[in-house]
Design a protein around this nucleic acid. Sequence first.
DNA 1: CCTATGATTTACT
DNA 2: GTAAATCATAGGG
Length: 208
Amino acid sequence: MSNKHLKNTNPYNPLPEDFFQQPTLKLAEALLGCLLINETEEGIASGYIVETEAYMGPEDRAAHSFGNRRTKRTEIMFSEAGVAYTYVMHTHCLVNVVSGPTDKPEAILIRAVEPVDGIELMKKRRNIEIPKNLTNGPGKLTKALGITMGDYGRHFTEPPLLLVKGITPQEISRGKRIGIDNSGEAKDYPWRFWITDNPFVSRHRKKD
DNA sequence: CCTATGATTTACT
DNA sequence: GTAAATCATAGGG
């Protein structure tokens, strides 16, 4: 397979329909290397997913859906797998892939991507020049790709927000999640996955 | 209506 | 390393 990224004249290689049906922890791992694409009026921007975190719903204190908490915000997590859960954190929008069967409120946070298409557009949106800092964090990548609350509930299987087949990671690492120190025992669950040694991973811990 | 809080980023000591 | 920015969401009065 060509290593060059696909252009819109060449149809993207779609993920199999049952891709999103696999268990959340497996899906979190399987998403690594997939190409996340967003089309807006400004143009197309895309990147390979290099870091994810799983949020396991009722039993996960760190999840918004802990204890089956069901609100206007978390409602989408109870729907079918493969739709987008976007929400605002401080001043940033974060994007998740809803996972698990219907009524199981599980989701996978996309924490970092490696820029592929639309790099100039990303620089403009982020107002920086250094490619390395464009998408190496959950709030950064949404701004670079132009993902907003308007994408809440969109299906990743159809434009403008798309997940398609990308690259196959050479090696995958697994460790504790980030930024949930106030979540009791859940803070130590090893539900974060990343492509080993990828420079766009949001942050390196000494030990995971 | 009012207040607390955060799955972050950025700048600073 | 620490702290401030800054606002939608959630929950209580």
